[in-house]
């Protein structure tokens, strides 16, 4: 589970200090499906980056699975990213030189998992995401939906407890976007925490818990009654 207390993040824009996050308190249980919505500049991406340990808060505490991690070293944080967190980006962020299979294998390579185990796990992931026939294609030869499936396969290959998705359907058309969301929601059904940042209201409404942000503060925190 994720517990944020008094998280503040300030950026210096010229001579003006911008409060991207202003004393945010937030708890997310394991296995929750949360959407974070708000206009641009509301701090939703910054919040996601801090949860994903890509960014450090200026003040406040962050505990992941009851372990305080704000003061961990850079290397320790990298290890947590590797093992517990999977990122899905709007622009996929695949490495253009590498094939689909190689892109999926990257987190395993970074973790130092031996090649024969890697091959097995990557093949399973390729099957799960219906990418087996595209395994040796480079990203430039894949459709948008396929690219995002590769990115999701990469994010989940280490079986992390948390998936962080930043506008995962932003570069996809409506139908493909819906398919991608189904994939992510399937993962959540199997117990993964899913946090989606979006400004698409329809998309945000699918989440069981919706957090609205404005000016670096949590404005609303609603749960769907249907669940």
């Amino acid at each position: 589970m994720i517990r944020l207390t008094g998280i503040t993040r300030t950026f210096q824009m010229g001579d003006q200090a911008v409060h991207a996050l202003d004393a945010v308190d937030l708890s997310i249980e394991s296995g929750e499906y949360v959407s974070i919505m708000g206009p641009s500049g509301s701090g939703k991406s910054t919040l996601l980056n801090i949860i994903g340990l890509l960014d450090r808060p200026d003040s406040g505490d962050y505990a992941l699975d009851y372990r305080p991690i704000t003061d961990l070293s850079e290397t320790e944080q990298a290890q947590i990213r590797r093992e517990k967190i999977g990122f899905v980006f709007q622009s996929f962020h695949l490495i253009p030189r590498l094939t689909a299979a190689e892109n999926i294998a990257l987190p395993l390579v970074l973790s130092g998992i031996p090649p024969n185990q890697r091959r097995h796990r990557v093949n399973t992931a390729l099957q799960d995401f219906e990418l087996t026939h595209r395994a040796n294609h480079r990203p430039s030869e894949l459709s948008g939906g396929q690219r995002q499936r590769v990115a999701i396969a990469r994010a989940t290959i280490m079986q992390p407890g948390i998936i962080l998705a930043d506008e995962p359907t932003g570069n996809l058309d409506h139908q493909i976007g819906a398919e991608v969301m189904m994939l992510l929601e399937n993962l959540q059904d199997r117990g993964t925490t899913l946090i989606v940042v979006t400004h698409d209201r329809e998309l945000g409404a699918r989440a069981h818990r919706q957090i609205g942000m404005r000016d670096g503060k949590v404005l609303t925190d609603r749960r769907n009654d249907t669940d």
Binding site: H93, L106, L110
Partner: peptide, 16 residues
Amino acid sequence: TAEIGLLKAIGATSGD
């Protein structure tokens, strides 16, 4: 640069 950012996001250390 973007690639380096990605590698860091999926858990590469500065040393890597």
